[in-house]
Write a protein that binds this DNA or RNA. Sequence first.
DNA 1: CCGTGCCGTTATATTAATACCGGTATAAGA
DNA 2: TCTTATACCGGTATTAATATAACGGCACGG
Lengths: 91, 91
Amino acid sequence: MVRTPLTPWERQRGERFGAILRRARGDRSMVEVAAAAGVSAETLRKIETGRAPTPAFFTVAALASALGMSLDELAAACASGAGDEGRALSA
Amino acid sequence: MVRTPLTPWERQRGERFGAILRRARGDRSMVEVAAAAGVSAETLRKIETGRAPTPAFFTVAALASALGMSLDELAAACASGAGDEGRALSA
DNA sequence: CCGTGCCGTTATATTAATACCGGTATAAGA
DNA sequence: TCTTATACCGGTATTAATATAACGGCACGG
């Protein structure tokens, strides 16, 4: 009953996700993008650094809108590259 | 202070969001779609009924994939119908 | 009539997301 | 040098997401 703790694979996915957002942000400041998306700068920072590996959907949607990105390409980008190889061994 | 409670507007958005997913599910069962997406049926139910108004991004991505929907159109669909006031997203 | 199974719901438990605060470091500018 | 702005980090507080478990409804078959 218990909200399974995030797996290492999920955390790595979060890191890739954050890296993608950081690249997309370019030279714009965190506070500017965060304000444009309507989220706090701390939240954006945690997402970018991978410390919030599974952010809320609408948070991501707002950030993608502020960054001019497609949600589908965003999901595809962080899924590719680790979708199947990193989580094979669990036992 | 911390983690601002969800506004009524956000909850209504969650209800619209869930209704869209429920329509997209059609006559398929909750358990089937949830299993296809890799989430628990209870989670899908809460999202569909609006009791989980701000689901995680990757949860939504998995559900959209299982339902054959685009994330962008999904976000746009639940934004339309309430996006009349200049409203910054949060949470 | 009574199990058996499936589905949706309700209740509970635990983790994680979000926000705020203070502090540190670095670089640019007055 | 001092100030300012940005980014990063740690901790704390509170709410919400998610999973598990238990509950009732509804079919079907014995």
